[in-house]
Design a protein around this nucleic acid. Structure first.
Length: 422
RNA sequence: GGAGUGAUGGCCGAGUGGACGAAGGCGACUGACUUGAAAUCAGUUGUAGGUGUACGCCUACCGGGGGUUCGAAUCCCUCUCACUCCGCCA
């Protein structure tokens, strides 16, 4: 959520942000109009409330019954006017937040302008794609051949876009999760295990509702929503809190499954395990002071890079252009690993500085040391990493001519001595 | 699932229709005293919104929502959450 004052005082900046994101700037005008109506309404309602308060106090002290009764009558009328104005105000504010809630964050000035993902900029490439002396296979051939991925069983028990990992495949994914969590703990993050279902308020706080409703799974009976990313429960941990400056930054890591309808990408990436309705992910999340968020974004990116590097996977770092930035993000790095079987770079991590956007929605603030006004803090999130794509990269990069897979050194402690999956 | 109790400021805790934005205590901050500290004394100590150049003034907020009333922390309804007891189950 943007600061209403920013929209009110510098509408041109907000309009530019929206057009840079290839979006319609109309909501800015609607908000400006509603804001004027809102303030007119508040002023009149509060004037009447002040009058009622003073007269009501006088009524309490009045002796003359006739005079008293006439004041009570007068105040009854004032009360009706107030009720009308309050109702008007409620409607105006409802419209105002409905519109404001769908306006994305302002891109950072450093985010390059671009109309879509084709204009994201590669800023770094690390590692050489491995040269194969045979034709590398995609994971959807390797996995079933080794009996570690079973697509038919996933479809049988649930449906399309679901799969089952088996034996060393299931264990390999578990090893990845455990290794990543331990790595992030060493990097200074505190591990959290959170609910995988949350209420609507929590999804609003992290920016998924109301805009991305159609991409979420929802249990109507209990009004529980399945999390689409650990970012949601992690943001939610501090909804409504006022933290002490000395507590910051709070750095968390969490493993959760993620549930997404993927309605927007129906028919895309249907082959393999790249895009499913359910996948596992390890996430990093930081609550910090505004002044330190840019620095911490670089640390978080470095932390995410260590996961790719630690697995010996060739990867590259992209800076997202304005047209491809996520709804909440001001500035984002994507990490992509090379997948020789699919023949493409796979996005395994997205590391973003959200600024105070989620903090406003979630009402998370901190009290500066030595007093002073409470301020909204900044939040950052980054995957470290997304499972299926990391698993794809491991399978495809570590394959051998005979179809077996070498287990990366880093994961072996969790693989019970297995160094080659065959 | 059944029965009961409760939810008040950073924390504890009083308050059952008007003088309550809320006693008292703790904590924190400022000042005085002190070489310094402790102790003591005095003062300050919530959030949000509106309005004015400004000391300020006004409005709202006592778990959430609704109602009664000229007026609600206080009365009524409802929801949520916590705790206690019983039942059931992993």
């Amino acid at each position: 959520m943007l600061d209403i004052n920013v929209i009110r005082e510098t509408p041109a900046i907000v309009r530019k942000a929206l057009t840079d994101r290839q979006m319609d700037a109309m909501p800015v005008e609607q908000i400006a109009q509603l804001d004027v109506q809102r303030r007119t309404c508040i002023q009149e309602a509060e004037r009447l409330k002040a009058e009622r308060n003073t007269v009501s106090k006088e009524i309490g002290k009045m002796k003359d019954p006739a005079q008293r009764q006439s004041k009570i009558e007068a105040m009854r009328l004032v009360g009706e006017q107030i009720a009308n104005l309050d109702e008007q105000l409620r409607q105006i504010e409802e419209q105002l937040t409905a519109i404001a809630a769908t306006i994305p964050n302002l891109p950072d000035a450093r985010a390059p302008y671009g109309k879509d993902d084709s204009e994201n900029q590669v800023i770094k490439v690390v590692g050489e794609p491995r040269v194969f002396d045979f034709e590398p296979k995609p994971h959807w051939d390797l996995g079933p051949a080794l009996g570690i991925i079973n697509f038919e069983q996933g479809v049988k028990i649930t449906g399309s876009r679901f799969y089952v990992l088996s034996g060393a495949g299931a264990r390999l994914q578990r090893a990845l999760i455990a290794w990543m969590l331990d790595l992030h703990i060493r990097q200074g993050y505190t591990e959290k295990y959170t609910p995988f279902m949350v209420k609507a308020e929590t999804l609003f706080a992290s920016g998924q509702l109301p805009k991305f409703r159609e991409n979420l799974y929802h249990d109507a009976e209990e009004d529980y929503w399945n999390v689409p990313t650990a970012e949601v429960p992690l943001t939610g941990l501090h909804i409504g809190d006022i933290l002490d400056e000395a507590q910051l930054p709070l750095t968390y890591t969490a493993y959760t499954p993620c549930f997404r309808r993927e309605k927007m990408s129906a028919g895309r990436d249907v082959r393999g395990i790249k895009r499913g309705h359910q996948f596992d992910k390890v996430e990093m999340y930081i609550f910090c002071k505004p002044e330190e968020s840019d620095t911490l974004l670089e640390k978080m990116r470095a932390d995410a890079e260590q996961t790719c590097a630690g697995l010996g996977l060739p990867y590259r770092v992209k800076q997202l252009c304005t047209g491809d930035l996520g709804f909440c993000a001001r500035f984002t790095y994507d990490l992509e690993v090379w997948s020789p079987g699919c023949g493409e770079w796979l996005e395994v991590s997205s590391v973003s500085n959200v600024g105070d956007f989620q903090a406003r929605r979630a009402n998370i603030r901190y009290r500066p040391e030595g007093g002073g006004k409470v301020r909204f803090l900044h939040t950052l999130n980054g995957s470290g990493l997304g499972m299926p794509r990391t698993l794809i990269a491991v399978l495809e990069n570590y394959q051998q001519a005979d179809g077996s897979i070498v287990v990366p050194e880093a994961l072996r402690p969790w693989m019970g001595g297995v160094d080659v999956i065959r």
